[in-house]
């Protein structure tokens, strides 16, 4: 088990290396630089800045310097928020993004699988159609439509919740972002659960339970666990989708998380911050996929590796 985890983590290293290299050179060959402001800086100031940030060295040297500092866990100084290092920015932004993302995922899992299971058990009933229509809507309506509508309804018309801002993580401020982020995931998970549950309910081992006269709660116990497998496999892509969604949500609700930093950083050519975000996201995806595989193996004895 421990060996397996170590092996998986080691096998992720080449991928990470490719990501780092690719994004490093992609950014540097692109036109524009971090100090190309609308009003050009004085040549002297520019030179100074470039020296401080080591942009005057040859590209390969910059690359090696960057790799070296990465090995020490240092993501370098931010080019835009010049008083901060990328590590410092992340130390503040990451917990915020994680909290919203994790809560949204949790909500989506619980609500989505409950709705999906309900629809599967009452297949072709009004409840089923309602859930499936809602799910299709949830998948098709983009996050950036849901967010302003929620703002309009709960923020302005009813004035129950604040329109945006983080306010040091007050729960009232996080309801709308979490809801926005969770809605499409609820929809997807509900559809997945319904489909797999319907298939499980038709399977031979459920027929066995019924032939043994086991009551509904046993049928549920067996079918939910089997139906959970595709949902668990979906969690990897779901985490990636949440990170994408966080870009929108954090922008609309003015939340100082990773997603918002990324867009700002990209627009401002903040090389190190962009790199840092890309690396961070890649690491998170790798870790999350590992966790998903472990959970899958825990649920399904057939893939256990002993």
């Amino acid at each position: 088990m421990a060996l397996y985890i170590v092996k998986r983590l080691l096998s992720a290293l080449p991928t990470l290396f490719i990501i780092i290299t690719l994004s490093f050179f992609l950014m540097r060959v692109a036109p524009g630089g971090p100090f190309d402001l609308e009003r050009p800086l004085e040549a002297k100031v520019m030179e100074n800045l470039k020296r401080v940030y080591q942009l005057d060295r040859p590209l390969w040297e910059q690359y090696l310097i960057y790799l070296k500092s990465l090995l020490h866990g240092d993501l370098g100084p931010s080019f835009y928020w010049r008083d901060f290092s990328v590590n410092e920015l992340f130390a503040r932004a990451l917990p915020i993004s994680m909290r919203i993302g994790a809560t949204a995922l949790g909500v989506a899992l619980v609500v989505g699988s409950l709705l999906g299971a309900l629809a599967a058990l009452r297949q072709n009933s009004a409840a089923d159609y309602a859930v499936m229509t809602g799910a299709t809507l949830g998948i098709t309506i983009p996050t950036f439509v849901v967010a302003p509508v929620l703002q309009l309804v709960f923020g302005l018309a009813l004035a129950w919740l604040p329109l945006g801002g983080w306010n040091d993580g007050a729960w009232r401020n996080s309801i709308l972002p979490i809801a926005t982020l969770a809605l499409p995931q609820i929809a997807i998970i509900a559809r997945l659960t319904r489909a797999s549950m319907i298939e499980v309910l038709r399977s031979h081992h459920i027929r066995t339970l019924r032939s043994q006269g086991l009551p509904l709660r046993y049928v549920l116990k067996h079918s939910l666990r089997a139906a959970a497998l595709p949902v668990v496999s979906y969690l990897g892509p779901a985490a990636a989708a949440l990170m994408t969604g966080s870009i929108v949500v954090e922008t609309i609700f003015a939340i100082p998380g990773i997603g918002r930093y990324f867009v700002d950083a990209a627009l401002n050519r903040d090389y190190t911050l962009v790199m840092g975000t890309v690396i961070l996201v890649a690491v998170l995806v790798v870790l999350f996929n590992l966790v998903v595989d472990l959970v899958y193996a825990w649920l399904d004895p057939r893939v256990r590796y002993e």
């Binding site: 991928t15 490719i18 992609l26 524009g32 890309v278 996201v281």
Partner: peptide, 19 residues
Amino acid sequence: DILYSLPFIFFVILLVVFF
């Protein structure tokens, strides 16, 4: 598999922003 684990949407944004 390797491409899968790239945070691709970030790359698309990078591409579009920079190019």
